[in-house]
Design a protein around this nucleic acid. Sequence first.
RNA 1: GGGCUCGUGGUCUAGCUGGUUAUGACGUCGCCUUGACAUGGCGGAGAUCCUGAGUUCGAAUCUCAGCGAGCCCA
Length: 865
Amino acid sequence: MPLSDPLPKNYEYREVEARWQQIWKDEDHYFQADSEKPQFVIDTPPPYPTGEFHIGNAFNWCYIDFIARYKRMKGYNVMFPQGWDCHGLPTEVKVEETHKITKNDVPRQQFREMCRTLTIGNIEKMRASMRRMAFSIDWSHEYITMMPYYYGKTQLSFLRMMKAGQIYQSDHPVNFCPRCETAIAFAEVNYSDRTTSLNFFNFDGVEIATTRPELLAACVAVAVHPEDKRYAGKKDTSLKVPIFGHEVSIITDEAVDPSFGSGAVMICTFGDKQDVIWWRMHNLPLRKAIDKTGKMTDIAGKYAGMTTRDCRKAILADMEEQGILIRQQPLEQRVGTCWRCKTPIEILSENQWFVRIPHEAALKAAKEVKWYPEHMFLRMENWIEQMEWDWCISRQRLFATPIPVWFCKDCGEVIIPEEAELPVDPTVDQPKKPCPKCGGTSFAPETDVLDTWMDSSISVLHVTGWDGSQKTPPLFPAQIRPQGHDIIRTWAFYTILRAVSLTGGKPWEQILVNGMVLGEDGFKMSKSRGNVTVPEEILSQYGADSLRQWAAAGASTGSDIQFNWNDVVAANRFLTKMWNISRFALMQLSRESYHEKAPVTALADRWLLARLDQTVREVSDAFETYLFDKGLRAIREFAWDVLADNYIEIVKGRLYGGAGRDGACVAIQTALNSLCRMLAPYTPYFAEEVWSAAFEGSVHKQPWVDFAYTDQQALADGQMLVRIVTEVRRYKHDKNLALNAPLGTVTVYTPDIIDDAGDGSLALNCTLQFRAGKPELKQIVSGVSFAMGIIGPALRGQAKAFMQAIEALPRDQLIQLPKMVTVGTEEIPIPEGSVIPQMSYTVAGAAVEIITAQDDLIITVEQKM
RNA sequence: GGGCUCGUGGUCUAGCUGGUUAUGACGUCGCCUUGACAUGGCGGAGAUCCUGAGUUCGAAUCUCAGCGAGCCCA
């Protein structure tokens, strides 16, 4: 064993972490294509390359890395790929800001190139943080969605689904962000509260309340409740729209709330989602009053060209002038906003591309996946069941995967490329053949691009080796998807949908859902709140291993986790403690040679190994079910409480003294070895540093701990030994004695005699003798306790009265319990073992002093005079 | 308005398939520099387990209602 150099006094995480980062090789974590081992493929989330790896990412990746490292040690062929979900609006916005341009100021291709350059730089920065965190990523399986090799697959998946009839083009109302000038999906709509004014006005004799007067030009009907007596007989009569003058009918619909305003509502195309429902149900005409840039269209007459805001003011002013504006009142409402730019969305009817939602198949696949924690499945179920519209996948932006389609200028036919031609950019490339329908040779490119989720929702297909040549990719399905609960309805759902549509099966066997990271104040981290902590700050103050422990132990799996410096500091202290334990262990093991195969016979040594056995099982179980907090707690308890505070203190004398030293050395060596392995997934730097000082090779190449040691007697007696030590410590403390002060003869009375191999005497600096049974002292009953586990089931409703009866008995009767007791008017038998008298003792003579007197443990001391 | 999750010492947190003295950390108080560690050891104080009702012999744990928080959705 390489034990020549003692460990330095302090654990310098800065030096250690930097050093191992240099020594470890990327290849150590590569997935081996030709391996015999069972595969464990992780469908890692591809983060958006903002340039900053934030604490939410760090938290998520810690979970992934715990799993990857554990599974490797368990003998799996692990793939921990790393993707980058590049496309999207934030990068476009950043480029516009940086270059002080708008997307239309430069050629399309040049703008996209600027986006790519920015993205590459951002990825570079984030990779550095991830390496510092010691994430065991397989960099040979990195993917960047903006690269041709990836977006070609996105396009291929588009064509396949289109050919299968799962993707279609349609004129349909969609959520539209006028600021981003693009359609967005429901998943991208957020809702926020705002106060607006509800305007009551005279609509050709009917009072109408509306929050959107600017949509008057788009009014296509007025609706009332069928039972509303105020409008009885008015059904199908027509009204003249004020200001604009076109005629609309009165229709009836159950969904109108008669108690809201006047009970009559104007239907416009489109003010909100309800308008869309009515529009479709009643087959109403379409009047587009707002265009894609949020300006009024020609049908708005003199208001054309105004923004919706200006138009609202102008129309309200005109209504007032005409004397038809009755009154206005404030109204709290929730308005849909674009999740990226917070602009209120409009619902516009535009020609867009859609993916059909296969509700049943998606739900079935979602059910087949094992969810951790289980209840997260409900979120998916609720989402799928309430989806009404298909998924709008076209976007009117630039930095995204192009939709691989042209239109024949002569006949309008949709032209698609051969799969072998992919990737294509229809705004650059041309179809290779004339139009199959009319033979035309001039084409218009589809300038719309794909929703970014179209890229990221095939991550699992990409990492499992999908290239379109096979129905099921070679490594499909992946074993696990780790992700946050915020993207269940997006990434998780879309991935299931795409896997079902393209392969017919579930994408992963398991999904592990982690919580959100909240700030120290318990609120979501946000710059405006000033409660943001970045991983780099934690890394530079306490190191990666401490941050990783916070992620593991800060909250149970699935719960949101509050960031907390205390936990990071505590994690750091644990490393210090563990370091000193390791130093002590290595010092002992190298101080003098010992027999590595020596039998372990002393009680303390057997107790340590039996407790280690328990710990190993607990930690292994925790990893199998992804309860990382539980695993780390078990390790800490074993290392700190069992090993350091009790075991080492108890056997120190034997380690220095000589006799029985071998067994202790074997026990310590075994414990240290196991601890390093169990810590390896949590604290890879620390575990490697200690392992390399004590053992051969890399801890990360070791198999998971395979240790079994069952010894019930040692567990019980060891625990008793710990109690004895604790009691004597307390006694010395109470007597203001130093803990190593000599104590004369201490006698321990327990039901069965304990053989501590002389450890107790050395540890407590006294002559410790063990006796079975009870001492010759004056016994008194100080109280009584009950075994509820016996009394409850045996006596049910009589339990309380029974206990009261027992407590009412004279205390001295409890030493020899009677067989029966009177409860109320009834004599009932006392169940075996149900009543436990609490004994205490007094000193008969002055010779001994009592340290403690409990039911099963009495300790006396005979002070040397 | 609906769904999900949660409410435990000053702070954060475990337990929550009902049954010893409710776990641990941070903080706090006292004692101790003992040959791994003062970034430590030992000991202590500190909890109406959000409120109310119910089920039960027994509730932090199960049920219902209320209050409050977070997330997701309408």
